[in-house]
Simulated scan of single mutants.
Amino acid sequence: MTVARVTKITAASPKSFDDAVHSGIERAAKTLRGITGFHVIEQKAMVADGKISQYLATMEVIFVLED
């Protein structure tokens, strides 16, 4: 029987939402083993001086628990 867990993370990037997602998953993979997928649940951006300064992606990361 396989059991999975979901954890929520938020990653930021000055480049794009896509870059925030990629860097978030890459960072999560350093700590979590058995990642099988993710779901982006929210995208936000921070603005400074009338320009986007940070793209933020909040996602649920799914990983299988080890025996």
Rank of each mutant, 00 (worst) to 15 (best):
M1Y: 06
T2A: 10
T2Q: 07
T2M: 07
T2F: 04
V3K: 12
A4H: 12
R5H: 02
R5Q: 06
V6L: 06
V6E: 10
T7N: 01
T7C: 03
K8A: 01
I9C: 05
I9Q: 07
A11Y: 04
A11D: 08
A11H: 07
A12D: 11
A12T: 14
S13Y: 11
P14Q: 08
P14K: 12
K15L: 10
S16F: 01
S16L: 00
S16N: 00
F17Y: 06
F17K: 00
D18I: 01
D18N: 08
D19A: 12
A20L: 08
V21T: 14
H22L: 10
H22P: 00
H22D: 12
G24K: 05
G24Y: 04
E26H: 02
E26A: 13
R27V: 02
A29V: 00
A29G: 11
A29M: 11
A29C: 02
K30H: 09
K30W: 01
K30M: 12
T31E: 13
L32R: 07
R33V: 07
R33F: 03
R33A: 12
G34K: 07
G34I: 03
I35M: 07
I35A: 04
I35P: 08
T36E: 15
T36Q: 14
T36F: 05
G37E: 06
F38H: 15
F38A: 06
V40M: 08
V40W: 05
I41M: 15
E42I: 01
Q43R: 14
K44T: 10
A45F: 08
A45K: 10
M46D: 15
M46F: 05
V47R: 04
V47Q: 07
A48G: 01
D49T: 00
D49N: 15
G50T: 06
G50Y: 03
K51G: 00
K51Q: 13
S53F: 02
Y55L: 04
L56P: 05
A57Q: 03
A57I: 02
A57R: 04
A57E: 02
T58R: 06
M59Y: 09
E60F: 04
E60V: 01
E60G: 11
V61G: 10
V61D: 09
V61H: 08
I62D: 13
F63L: 07
V64F: 05
V64Y: 06
V64Q: 14
V64E: 15
D67H: 09
D67K: 12
D67R: 09
